[in-house]
């Protein structure tokens, strides 16, 4: 029992890396747009299924990852520049319209995935072996994917904190008006944030399909999963997002083991509602005021 718990814990920590990448893109987009991209999960699924098709014609998933991420970068850019940028006005009304537009878009993306790949669950059999460390068997695929996901999340974090473009993205996230008065091209930043965020979704999808099977309609679930994570971490907080990813990873692995697949699918929503009620500003967030 003790051994099982330890190995579940380690597995959960590894899953945390994948979750972090899965939600990182949404966090970036939310920060800048103040709107949740409800098509985020469908982007992840689309990317995963694209990686699946590339695998079928002989590509290694780690090779298809940059290809898929690039494709999603383009899709994200189109979504922002071709669609959402045309929503006029500002404030709550414009945010509501953006939200509803992404709501419609999520159906467009998932339906297109459905038309191309059908409704079967797909997965890439990648590195099927396991490494035994200290008596704990760790699937190689999870080790590699988790490592790549952590590395990519760290790279984006460095981009945000160390480069000029990244800094303007953070500036717009904190105050769009303030950034504009400092000469930041806000339109460009929104475009950049949406593209990079979508590319992260793309990379996450390519990794995720090596770990679990999913189908064209799995997107909604993943959007909620990603949103739960950033809500749990406190919107815009990077340390918080990391902690939340690890917590959710452990919770998911544990419930999967003890309650089965449906239990694991349900736990995410329970965590979601519980977080919002008991810690509405996230794990590390501070209480708001009137």
């Amino acid at each position: 029992m003790y051994q099982t718990l330890i190995s579940l814990l380690v597995l959960g920590l590894l899953w945390g890396g994948v979750f972090l990448l899965l939600a990182g893109g949404l966090n970036l987009i939310y920060g800048v747009m103040k709107v949740v991209n409800l098509a985020h999960g469908d982007f992840i699924v689309l990317a995963g299924l694209m990686a699946f098709s590339l695998y079928e014609i002989g590509f290694n998933p780690l090779v298809s990852l940059p290809i898929v991420a690039l494709a999603l970068f383009a899709l994200g850019g189109f979504t922002q520049f071709g669609l959402l940028e045309h929503i006029k006005g500002s404030g709550p009304t414009a945010e509501l319209r953006t939200l509803l537009a992404t709501f419609g878009f999520s159906y467009v993306v998932s339906n297109i995935s459905f038309l191309i790949w059908g409704s079967q669950f797909q997965s890439i059999p990648f590195l099927q072996g396991a490494v035994v460390i200290g008596g704990i068997a760790l699937p190689e695929a999870l080790l590699v994917c988790s490592f790549v996901a952590f590395a990519l999340s760290a790279a984006v974090h460095l981009w945000l904190t160390r480069t000029k473009h990244g800094k303007s993205v953070r500036a717009v996230a904190q105050s769009s008006l303030g950034a504009e008065t400092c000469g930041v091209d806000v339109r460009k930043v929104r475009f950049l944030a949406f593209s990079v965020g979508s590319a992260m979704a793309g990379a996450a999808g390519a990794l995720l399909i090596c770990l679990i099977p999913f189908q064209a309609t799995s997107g909604g679930e993943m959007t909620v999963q990603a949103f739960t994570l950033i809500a749990l971490g406190g919107l815009g907080s990077y340390v918080g997002a990391f902690l939340a990813a690890e917590l959710l990873g452990i919770a998911e692995v544990m419930t999967q083991y003890f309650l089965g697949a449906n239990g694991a699918a349900g736990i995410i929503y329970v965590v979601f509602v519980a977080v919002l009620i008991f810690r509405p500003s996230g794990l590390l967030g501070k209480a708001g005021r009137v």
Binding site: L83, L100, A101, F103, G104, F105, S106, Y107, V108, S110, N111, I112, F114, L115
Partner: peptide, 9 residues
Amino acid sequence: QAILGIVTM
């Protein structure tokens, strides 16, 4: 779904 999604947008 896709067509309704486009109309929604």
